[in-house]
Write a protein that binds this DNA or RNA. Structure first.
Lengths: 332, 332
DNA sequence: TTGAAAGCGGTACCAC
DNA sequence: GTGGTACCGCTTTCAA
């Protein structure tokens, strides 16, 4: 079995209180006993129990993360960055994929609360807010990540999606496009914000988007493929399409090519998120990039601060997106 | 604050032992008190502390997963499937990306042990085995996932990589190719096993692979791009290339197209893993598929069994890969 | 059918 | 400097 603090204390001929102090560098212990205890710990290969520490010390050093789907490229990159930042601070992540389902959302929320995570990152739009209010009662700090809604008492770390949509819109305008389509990502509310920004941009040229020009697709390839087909077979074909995720954009490009439509010569496509697959596309995808490194960094910092000093003022950090110009948009 | 079992007991006018029993459906409690306690628990919104349960009950209901990089499409899909299966059994996952670095590998191993995870899934080749031996002392069940090496006492759940390489090789042969190149994935040993299978296949036509025909690339796009260039500029260009991961294959295809080389007309490319990006490629990537659903399912089942009955005999589950024929290989 | 009490492996306060 | 000890919140005998 795993050695306990009692085993160490006995072997070192000191009390567990003393051992605890050398583990945590607290109190005043003589150099001699510190050495002795340390040596014993090493030879026994002793490691304090995280569980016991959590129970006594009130911290689990674990952060819960709710995402729609970890296999989605955007979220797996986010997970990686969050993990990187958390690790440096000694925290581990429990990542939970809700698949846009209320029951999963709730069961994972309960799971995280039960595991007593020190903080929660919500990166998927809650479907039913009610149960989330429990988090506040529990005093667990929360960051809404990439979601900008005042759902309950949380920090917010996100990208300015209005701006992002605006960037996409004005870029396409600047490239001479006047006939657009927009594909939203079903289940993610920031699609709507991006759409709003897009509309704002084109309204400056007195253009508007009719409902027929707005499509919505789940983040699955099959669904995206169907939407792509219906856009491309529509008689009033747009010259440029704004897709609210790179994945949808890639599928659209692929489908266009299958139908003999040249991208970007005959059809321009712009994505959103700048995930790795944007570079893998042919033509490489022009897209709106979110500053995910900075988002992740701020998120973890914010949470760790909130953990150590509860009652910190809630923050709202909004970073700016940026156009990533590649090959999928042409002059019209 | 979070209500404790004491709060519930007091409100229900019973002892904590009784409450504990109704929580766990153990012992014999009268219907009446069960009802009473349950009602109280609901109105108080009581949830037992996972930490305390773990300390008293010896289980954390957490499984640790070591992967090279969660943002790698193969591993994010794996993570998703593992999570799915674990969730159904009430377990959460702590996913750790080692980035092929010894220090990360060790720090995460220590982290998982400290957190007292109930089991560990190792999906990245350990660089330094030594510290892993601690796991055995701790009696924590382990599955080597997609790794087939007798490192220490572990279960093994993997795909037959020899067979996989063989499938790739014989398929290319059958398509009339005789001049090959193989790109290994640096840091993953099963690349070598796949290579071995590939060599076996072509040896049946009395063909061999020289060292000059074998390349090795990290799983990063920049590196893959460099390797791709050096393959494609080599005067003795192959007619078919076997890439040990889909990502490398995609980059290779992209680079080939940039140089005006038609895929698959002038160059055939076959990948490995059948990750989502294989479908996103143009042409769509022919690849060797691993049965990841089944792998994940077996892994979690095996571990949960081992947790509940320690000392279970170690198992070695080897599943078969399968050719996924798409568009990137032509008749030569 | 219920409850008292001894752990589980630490932390932290208070004596000495 | 060091140690005794009361928790932390739950599980699990063992008695009653």
């Amino acid at each position: 079995m795993k050695p306990t603090i009692y085993d160490v204390a006995k072997a070192a001929e000191v009390s567990i209180a003393t051992v605890s102090k050398v583990i945590n560098n607290t109190g005043r212990i003589s150099e001699k006993t510190i050495k002795k205890v340390r040596t014993i710990m090493e030879t026994m290969d002793y490691q304090p129990s995280g569980v016991a520490t959590a129970l006594a010390g009130k911290q689990t050093f674990t952060i819960g993360v709710l995402v729609p789907e970890i296999s989605n490229p955007f979220f797996s990159e986010i997970a990686k960055l969050l993990e990187d930042n958390a690790r440096e601070a000694g925290y581990a992540l429990i990542i939970c994929s809700t698949y846009y389902q209320v029951d999963r959302e709730h069961m994972y929320l309960d799971l995280l609360l039960k595991k007593q995570v020190d903080a929660i990152i919500i990166a998927t739009d809650p479907i039913d807010i009610e149960p989330f209010k429990k988090i506040n009662k529990r005093q667990v700090p929360v960051v809404l990540f990439t979601i900008d809604e005042l759902l309950f008492s949380t920090h917010v770390v996100t990208t300015d999606d209005i701006k992002g949509g605006y960037i996409a819109g004005s870029y396409l305008l600047q490239k001479g496009h006047r006939n657009f389509a927009v594909v939203l990502e079903e289940g993610r509310k920031n699609s709507l914000t991006r759409l709003k920004g897009f509309k704002e941009a084109i309204s400056e040229k007195n253009l508007i988007l009719t409902d027929q020009q707005i499509y919505s697709s789940k983040s699955s390839m099959k669904e995206a493929r169907n939407i792509a087909k219906s856009i491309l077979t529509n008689p009033d074909k747009p010259t440029a399409i704004f897709c609210c995720t790179d994945l949808i954009a890639l599928v659209l490009i692929q489908e266009a090519k299958k139908q003999g439509i040249l991208v970007p010569e005959e059809l321009s496509v712009i994505g959103y998120d700048n995930t790795v697959i944007a570079e893998l596309s042919d033509p490489e995808l022009t897209t709106v990039a979110q500053p995910i490194n900075a988002l992740a960094k701020h998120t973890i910092e914010l949470l760790i601060n909130s953990i150590s000093s509860p009652g910190t003022e809630l923050q709202r950090i909004v970073l700016l997106p940026e156009l990533k110009e590649r090959e999928s948009v042409n002059l019209n």
